[in-house]
Amino acid sequence: MNMLRSAAIAAVSLAPLCAVPVHASPASDVLMTVTTSEGSREYDLAALQALPQTEFTTSTIWTEGEQEFGGVLLSDLLEDAGITEGSIMATAINDYAVQIPLDEVDDIAPIVAYHLNGETMSVRDKGPLWIVYPYDLSVDYQTEINYSRSIWQLDRIVQAD
Rank of each mutant, 00 (worst) to 15 (best):
S13Y: 07
G71V: 04
A27L: 14
E85L: 01
Q49N: 12
W152Q: 05
T33H: 04
Y114C: 02
G118Q: 10
I100P: 08
E42D: 15
F69A: 03
V72D: 03
T58P: 07
I131A: 04
V12Y: 00
T91R: 12
G65R: 10
V158S: 07
W62C: 02
A113M: 07
G65T: 08
N94M: 08
A47P: 07
A10P: 02
Y135T: 01
I145M: 07
N146G: 01
A46G: 00
L137S: 10
V98W: 14
T120V: 15
P128S: 14
Q49M: 15
T36S: 08
H115M: 15
T120E: 15
R124M: 14
T57W: 04
Y43I: 10
L129D: 13
T84F: 00
S6G: 00
V132G: 00
H115R: 15
S59K: 09
D140K: 12
T54K: 09
S59M: 06
E104I: 02
Y133D: 00
A109P: 04
M121L: 07
E85W: 01
W62N: 03
S6N: 14
D76R: 10
A90D: 13
G65N: 06
D136Y: 00
G127E: 08
A47L: 03
A8L: 15
G82S: 04
I108W: 00
A113Q: 00
A160K: 11
F69R: 01
Y141V: 05
Y133H: 04
Y133T: 00
R156G: 07
D136H: 01
Q49A: 12
V139C: 01
R41P: 02
D106E: 11
P16C: 13
T84H: 03
V12R: 02
A10T: 14
V34T: 06
A81C: 02
M1G: 13
S6K: 14
T54R: 02
A46Q: 12
L137V: 08
S40I: 01
L48H: 06
G39E: 08
G118K: 10
A113D: 10
P110G: 09
V12G: 06
T58I: 04
Q49L: 07
E85H: 08
D140P: 00
D29W: 11
M121S: 05
A160Q: 14
R5D: 12
M1V: 10
A47V: 02
V112Q: 05
M89R: 15
I83T: 07
A160G: 10
L116F: 05
D107A: 14
D136F: 00
T60L: 04
E38M: 10
N2T: 09
V98C: 05
A97N: 11
T54I: 07
I100G: 10
A92C: 07
Q99E: 15
V98R: 14
I157Y: 04
Y141N: 03
R149H: 06
E42V: 03
N2E: 05
L116Q: 09
V72S: 02
E42Q: 15
Y114G: 06
T54L: 00
V72T: 11
P110A: 08
G127D: 09
P134H: 05
E66K: 13
L77Y: 05
A92V: 10
I145S: 11
V132R: 00
R41W: 01
T54D: 06
V72L: 05
P101R: 10
A11D: 02
D95P: 05
D76C: 05
D106H: 07
T54C: 05
T35E: 11
V112C: 09
